[in-house]
Design a protein around this nucleic acid. Structure first.
Lengths: 256, 256
DNA sequence: CCTTCTCTAGGTACAGCGTACGTAGAAGCG
DNA sequence: CGCTTCTACGTACGCTGTACCTAGAGAAGG
């Protein structure tokens, strides 16, 4: 943690002679992480909006029209504010996305303590994430694009660590396990979304694949096609692979 | 699914009286999937560029300046072509990204046949993917964003199916396994990239996390922090989790 | 051969994006 | 009270993807 007053000196923007003049405050070093910036400093007029309301507005737009429709102008308009006013709350658009992420992460219903059944607790977390992802179709893409760790994500992380405590794994290993676990669920949700988005795309893909299988260049693909049964219920496929992932996490490997 | 000739009717752009006139060809329905469009039809002047050269140009830009620097204008300029000429080869920017994806997928060195050691073959695939992702830092993000299945991806898929044939799993299950497997590697590579990108960001994150751990609101997080050893070699962490993933794939669960 | 049709090349233009910058005024602190 | 620091927001810039249009190249049909 650097002292809050020392300027780095490498970022002088104006004339160099004014570099060290104490009259120029040179906004010392705003943290890049939005959660490190206080929402309110106490000085000046009180803000007309809150991070929560901004996130809610953005989420409303994303739910209704997709993530691409979330622009600074749109969100500001939804709040009844001027476009540039939004930049008082959110220094860059990235941070707006961080707010959205953490807001939906708040939708988890986390029990006060683990039930004792690790498998069940993990399965519950996975299904909750799938539900949330279905409510907010843009979520998987965002989750895959940026890590982010807002307050609600911290709560989730703490809960995950609590749930997996009985495995005997060390803290680092459990964090890796969480990444693996979340990653799987997120990717599944993401795939579900893209598949649902374009029926035409999916139909073309099937045609393309079977044509490729027919060509003879991909014998194993052809064989897989031949032996594949009906398209299979996605929910069942999810549970099946989820089981494998949980087993992978719970199986001891001798390393911490 | 509408028959392939009937116009939807909602897309008439010109005068409606010319709608069904046979003289107007009405480019019947170009497939959305770029791999379904022939690269060359045979009529007209021969194109000045190829899909390969276009992909190479785009990849060069992305490698040097990141994915955001890949714009239609930039790629066209790199080819010495006018911006709009690019649209003769690539109907939308998405398809340019598809070309890039499949081109780098061609960098896999796939042995002509599986070695017989499933674990070793899978580990090799994973390490190759990690290498390719390190050569092309933009790859993980792209891979996570869109499925895509170009010719090289088909070759990869066929190989994966061949490698996993001895597991006794059905075709569908092995496809799911591939998704899990690729997803893990891709996410790991992606995380590695974002971590490498911003040292400042990472430092802030550590500060934020330890501050959160200190606050007492997240006891398990605090405990994980306390028991965590040194930051751990990323390569070792990769191999460790990769082992778990492979085990998850290889362990029979009674379902096909 | 010439005609015709289809293709490629590329310019112009538009709507929309993120955001740098500057100004005006309100609210807390000394 | 004044000083400082905040909020609000209009204007403007450079950039994006791409719709639309005009020329002209070259293969196919007569």
């Amino acid at each position: 943690m650097p002292s809050s007053k020392t300027p780095t000196g490498s970022e002088s923007r104006k004339s160099p002679d004014a570099a060290q003049q104490p009259g120029r405050p040179t906004p010392p070093e705003a943290p890049e992480l939005i959660w490190l910036r206080p929402e309110r400093t106490g000085r000046g007029p009180r803000p007309a909006h809150s991070r929560d309301s901004i996130a809610a507005a953005a989420i409303g737009i994303a739910d209704a029209e997709g993530l691409d429709a979330v622009s600074m102008r749109r969100v500001a308009a939804a709040l009844g504010a001027g476009t540039m006013s939004l930049y008082n709350y959110v220094p860059k658009k990235e941070h707006l996305l961080d707010l959205m992420l953490d807001a939906v992460t708040g939708e988890y219903r986390l029990p006060p303590a683990p039930s004792g059944d690790v498998r069940a607790d993990l399965a519950d977390l996975a299904h909750q994430q799938l539900d949330i992802s279905r409510r907010h179709p843009w979520l998987p893409a965002l989750l895959l694009a940026r890590p982010s760790l807002g307050p609600n994500a911290l709560r989730y992380t703490d809960h995950f660590l609590a749930v997996t405590a009985p495995t005997g794994l060390g803290g680092g290993a459990r964090m890796e396990a969480m990444a693996l676990f979340n990653g799987f669920v997120t990717q599944f949700a993401q795939y579900e979304q893209t598949a649902a988005a374009g029926a035409k795309w999916q139909a073309e893909l099937v045609g393309y694949l079977s044509q490729a299988a027919m060509s003879g260049d991909f014998p194993h693909l052809a064989q897989a096609f031949a032996t594949a049964g009906p398209p299979a219920d996605p929910d069942r496929a999810f549970d099946r692979t989820l089981d494998r992932v949980i087993s992978a996490i719970l199986t001891p490997t001798g390393a911490t």
